[in-house]
Design a binder for these strands. Structure first.
Lengths: 243, 243
DNA sequence: GAAATTTTATTTGTCAGACATTTAAAAGTC
DNA sequence: GACTTTTAAATGTCTGACAAATAAAATTTC
């Protein structure tokens, strides 16, 4: 692990990079202890403050964890799917909001990916996840539910659908696509009739998952995508005429 | 933006969290300038070093950028798809290698997601991306290509396929799934006959994309998944009998 | 001799102050 | 008015110090 001493700025980034590369390359395995900050400072010929800034960068990506005290230090962290989920959701949310991604583009991506899951979900769903889906459908039918709560329940329903595929890699990749759309969905006002329509489609999808029919689930998702886009179109045309 | 002064450890993480929340909530918009480090130190009642550690955490996630000099400072960064790609690839790669994800699980996720892209790619592919796919197929047929170069070309081919959908959200989500598999694929030794088989399937997929037939592309991808899994199975059984 | 307690050493977390470097704006010069 | 010089503000880095946590070693107690 070496850094470039000719570039006296950005030292902390270089240090982070060097250590990150060592982790990715497998030179530092999970739970391995890094040298102490003082030792790293000597190795890289920089001050302890600079080393610390570099380590904080790695901590922000959950690549290391630190522990105080004797025999403490910085340890290579086992990157858990859970840790990765939340980062993925934050990143995806900001990507959508900062890059003016259209509702249609985000929606298309989300449903294309969900349809990819559906056949696997139908084949493997556990009773637990099916129960979650049914429970969320029930919640969505409750009167007096705010639009935001309705959207949150919608996300929970789709999460259960995705998780039914029992493939953590798929769940991880989809977490971003599904949850990042929530702020966009929150802009929609759902009338009682809108909710009924969505609820019926959710039931249709849940039924397909229960009976193990992947193609029915895919068809249900396609119909749901259609409906979602229609609602969004209505919102935007209404906004435009109002403004 | 407030932090908890009762918890005198983890201050830099709290500061990062507070600022990150402000960005996600939209209180700090793109290109907004944060207060100077000295001002933040006073606001949060901590030292400048602690503020800096917090800011480095945000920089590691590409949420802010810094600029030296008068009228410099920390600015909210527009999170670009490009920045997000590389983070996504690093994270996905580590997730697979650190969590003992099986080849089959990763492969299943990857091809399920790619098949989700295929119909869109067939409908929208540009001449440019088709040319890239053809060029990579040609490269894959060259004699004397190392296995690693073959894998790299394979990734480039699939990237072009995914990008053909012209949906940046899809491209972003898939970057991780496709590229993170490269280390796994690198464990495979490709015989001349293996390469011919893969090449033929790639041609079949490219043809389908060219003629705009999504279903043919999906079928080609399914066949390619089958072939990939078979090769991996062979490697692992050979390893096992050898060991 | 074993258990409980105290001490010690190590390591991270934070702070304060200093200087170097970069950079844009202000001031000065021709 | 255009060019040069100065100045001020900001980040980047360094040094040295102390606080707090923690495990191991040393000591005391029974």
């Amino acid at each position: 692990m070496k850094i470039d001493p000719n570039n006296p700025a950005d030292l902390s980034a270089q240090i982070a990079s060097a250590i990150r590369d060592a982790i990715v390359a497998g030179d530092l395995i999970v739970d391995a202890r890094l040298p102490s900050e003082a030792e790293l400072a000597e190795q890289f010929q920089v001050s302890r403050a600079t080393v610390r800034e570099g380590l904080k960068r790695l901590a922000a990506q959950s690549l290391i964890r630190t522990q105080r005290g004797a025999s403490g230090g910085a340890f290579v962290n086992r990157l858990s799917f859970e840790d990765a989920y939340s980062q993925q959701v934050t990143t995806s949310t900001l990507l959508l909001s900062m890059n003016a991604v259209s509702f249609d583009t985000a929606c298309e991506a989300r449903y294309a990916l969900e349809r990819a899951c559906a056949p696997l979900s139908a084949a493997r769903r556990s009773a637990d996840q099916l129960a979650t889906m049914r429970a969320e459908i029930f919640r969505q039918g409750q009167p007096g539910l705010t639009d935001e709560a309705f959207c949150a329940s919608d996300v929970a329903f789709h999460r259960a659908l995705v998780d039914s595929a029992h493939n953590p890699v798929l769940s991880y990749q989809l977490a971003g696509a599904v949850e990042a759309m929530q702020p966009l969905m929150n802009m929609i006002t759902f009338t009682a009739r809108d909710r009924q329509t969505i609820l019926a489609l959710h039931s249709r999808i849940a039924d397909a998952i229960e009976t193990g029919s992947g193609s029915d689930a895919v068809a249900g998702l396609a119909a749901l995508e259609e409906e979602t886009r229609k609602l969004a179109r209505d919102v935007f045309t209404r906004r435009r005429t109002k403004a």
